[in-house]
Design a protein around this nucleic acid. Structure first.
Length: 139
DNA sequence: GCCAACGTTGGC
DNA sequence: GCCAACGTTGGC
């Protein structure tokens, strides 16, 4: 199983929006970046991800699961763009802020820090465990 | 609201 | 194929 991080501006699509979709989940659409798309193509059903709020909150706020592999993005006719479907699994007990991630040496390699503009990122198993621990959820 | 970083586009 | 110009994102 692989781990990922999904970034969204809460004013556009928030954790609460995601939770409201329940087990049916929702497309992670609107991605118009090749790197991010390519990561989505690598995703498999059952992969886990962090749901990160950018801009105002700048924190990991929930855990999601991939429930559909990459398929054409329904919000565009452009065949280049694809997306996966994800559903909310559980909220974190403690939001893991960007500041906390930056403050932990073990997380210095995270794409969140190294390439802050990338909206869909891979997370290593070690990073996953560390952030889950900080968040107060089981990995 | 500003600005740095980065990705994309288009002219050559 | 290179590179300048431009647009977008996200942290501050």
């Amino acid at each position: 199983m692989n781990y990922w991080l999904f970034k969204s501006e809460p004013s556009t699509w928030s954790w609460d929006n995601q939770v409201a979709k329940g087990d049916a989940g929702e497309e992670w659409d609107g991605v118009r970046n090749y790197q991010a798309r390519n990561f989505m193509r690598e995703m498999a059903i059952g992969d886990r991800g962090f749901f990160y709020h950018s801009q105002t909150e700048k924190a990991v706020v929930g855990i999601v699961e991939v429930i559909a592999e990459a398929h054409p993005d329904s919000t565009t006719d452009d065949e280049r763009w694809e997306c996966v479907d994800i559903k909310a699994i559980e909220p974190v007990k403690t939001p893991v802020t960007l500041e906390m991630v930056k403050g932990d040496e073990r997380l210095s390699e995270m794409a969140l820090i190294r390439n802050s503009r990338l909206s869909v990122q891979p997370v290593t198993e070690d990073q996953w465990r560390i952030v889950c621990e900080m968040a107060g959820v089981s990995p």
